[in-house]
Design a protein around this nucleic acid. Structure first.
Lengths: 168, 168
DNA sequence: TCGGAATAGTTCATTTGTGTACTATTCCGA
DNA sequence: TCGGAATAGTACACAAATGAACTATTCCGA
């Protein structure tokens, strides 16, 4: 079926060779990486016609989702699952193109607030139909109950992953 | 709780602003990306002491899991969820360091077979305890039933993601 | 069986992403 | 209230990843 079957076999074999290597979590982690990669590639393909990539999209969407008030670079980093340095780089590009703006936070002058310009909002609304239909295709694989289950389990996994990283 | 809550709010708001943007799949995709990133970062941190990164690890483990017979570069590409060009690059490094070897496939001379050297196997067995314990920490978040559920749902999502990409 | 199409892998220029060091600002305990 | 620790963001050199073009080989239908 899926190309993943071969991977599953290799994981099983590794577990046989080295028994403390746990089959189940290894599977989960590989699955997540594979899905993430396919989603990334597909999104890149769709977004290319707008001169954007998946990372740009993730950033723009988070800004769109917080409306006028804007958000800080750190919030953007967490929301887009990128490193600060990369967020800075992407923001430079998006600002240069006139889709977003930076301004100092009067409350805390270490912070930089970012938000979409009207041009940025227009851009988002231009690609949103394509991207929504793409997302709907993923969603079509599950009924409501499965979606909820998957979401719950993934949230838990994310929580654990965050904690493990923090404690390291 | 998790830093993800803010993202969830933004997704909800976006759905309100633009109703065809589907909340659930957007959540799933964002969760997967966030988990993938945290796993990647954590693995990089652990593997650094061995002079490796997460991609190297993914490649080495797939080779370890197919024992002596070896595998082709394309199989490795699918197994590691990387692009061919990147697999070539990583293999160059791992070959240079003496951990894996390339040889022509006598059956089909377009193909290149790759496999671990004895030094490569020794390296894998050196980092495997740390990495196994890391994986076990992820696994500890779920009971057997939940693990099985999550695995099933993720396999389905992967299948869909592969298909959507193929059809694009 | 010939020749165009498909497949496997690499090369290379470019884009994307990261670690680290640094500046500026704020926090907070003595 | 002073000063060291923590936090926010950026700069920059370097590492990792990608798209596209290319070579070699195999496939397969006329």
């Amino acid at each position: 079926m899926s190309r993943f079957d071969a991977t599953e076999n290799r994981i099983n074999l590794t577990h046989q060779r080295f028994s403390s290597y746990p089959r189940e979590p290894a599977m989960l982690v590989r699955l997540v990486k594979a899905i993430s990669q396919h989603v990334h590639d597909t999104a890149n393909l769709v977004l290319r016609q707008y001169g954007l990539n998946h990372t740009d999209y993730n950033v723009l969407m988070m800004l769109y989702g917080c409306q006028q008030e804007g958000m800080t670079v750190t919030q953007l980093r967490d929301a887009a699952a990128e490193k600060s340095a990369n967020v800075t780089r992407v923001c430079n590009i998006l600002c240069d193109r006139g889709w977003m703006a930076r301004y100092a936070d009067p409350q805390d002058r270490r912070r930089v607030l970012v938000s979409l310009t009207p041009e940025g909002e227009a851009l988002v609304e231009q690609f949103l139909p394509s991207m929504s239909s793409l997302l709907n295709q993923y969603g079509a694989a599950f009924d409501a109950r499965e979606t909820a289950q998957l979401e719950t389990l993934l949230k838990r996994l994310l929580g654990v992953a965050e904690q493990i990283e923090r404690e390291l």
